[in-house]
């Protein structure tokens, strides 16, 4: 279609520790920044401003809204999120299908929701509150969870599908989370891919992890394992997403290793290298 924007291709999560590396990627057109790490009004971190000046699309990725919390999302957090989206001139924003606090206590982590209708209602209500303040589309990311709740009413695909249908949100698919959950639950990741609405994928996260005592942890501080890259290939063969980005959150390796991971994502998805 003539009016479909060209895909972004391979991107990366911008972090201050790797700002120089990201700035040096000649083909980069897509990046993501943790929304809570950006000031709503003060100066932008220099490396981020350079990307914006170059026309790189930078999407704010919220991690503390707690969209899946039983209580309404904090209006001040939504206001900040909206201000950051506007500063970045972002065409979309993203957050998680998860909760991070309850009863006034911070968990410090993204926690899984019970896959119940009540939880679907909570997410949908909170997404509606966010969308009242943010005019651009929001993409929702299903998380990796080491444990499940008992007495769940919906399968993972039903749970995600209902939330997207009722909220009108797009899907931020973390392919490493798909891998982690399938491996830890002993299910088939391809089965989940076949059940998800891939036409609603706004972009994709690709991250590394490691096994500890029989469980796969989605750490974002280890290398991207080959099975995750294989899933990028499977996904792209079904419906190639407009953007796929490397998500690394610590223990940063030498630039050559990051370059190799970006190139591996490009090869697996069929997009041109950005390095």
């Amino acid at each position: 279609m003539a009016d479909t924007p060209p895909p972004y291709g391979v991107g990366i999560g911008w972090r201050p520790e790797i700002a120089g590396f990201v700035e040096g990627l000649p083909g980069l057109r897509f990046a993501e920044v943790v929304a809570e790490s950006v000031h709503a009004h003060g100066e932008l971190p220099p490396g981020l401003q350079v990307l914006l000046d170059r026309g790189v699309t930078v999407v704010p990725h919220g991690v503390r809204l707690s969209l899946g919390g039983a209580e309404p999302v904090d209006p001040e957090r939504v206001t900040h999120f909206a201000a950051v989206a506007e500063r970045l001139d972002a065409p979309l924003v993203s957050e998680h299908i998860a909760f991070v606090r309850a009863g006034g206590v911070e968990a410090g982590h993204l926690l899984p929701l019970p896959r119940t209708r009540e939880a679907v209602d909570a997410v949908v209500a909170n997404v509606r509150r966010v969308r009242e303040q943010i005019p651009v589309p929001i993409a929702l990311e299903p998380i990796a969870a080491l444990f499940d709740w008992p007495d769940e009413e919906l399968t993972e695909a039903q749970f995600i599908g209902e939330i997207l249908d009722r909220s009108g949100a797009l899907l931020l698919l973390d392919i490493a989370n798909v891998y982690a959950n399938a491996r830890n639950r002993g299910t088939d990741p391809l089965e989940l891919l076949d059940q998800l609405p891939l036409d609603r994928v706004a972009y994709v996260h690709v991250a590394g992890g490691a096994e500890h005592q029989g469980l796969y942890h989605d750490t974002h501080t280890d290398a991207v394992p080959q099975p995750v890259l294989d899933l990028v290939g499977e996904l792209s063969a079904r419906q190639r997403p407009p953007a796929l980005m490397l998500e690394r959150d610590g223990d940063y390796p030498p630039a050559a290793a990051l370059t190799a991971e970006l190139d591996a994502i490009a090869r697996a998805s069929g997009y041109p290298s950005v390095t």
Partner: peptide, 18 residues
């Protein structure tokens, strides 16, 4: 409190306060 709120509060308490 709804069932979900109770579930979430219990989970966070278990994770962060023993």
């Amino acid at each position: 409190m709804s069932g979900l709120a109770d579930q979430q509060a219990a989970l966070v308490a278990a994770l962060t306060s023993g």
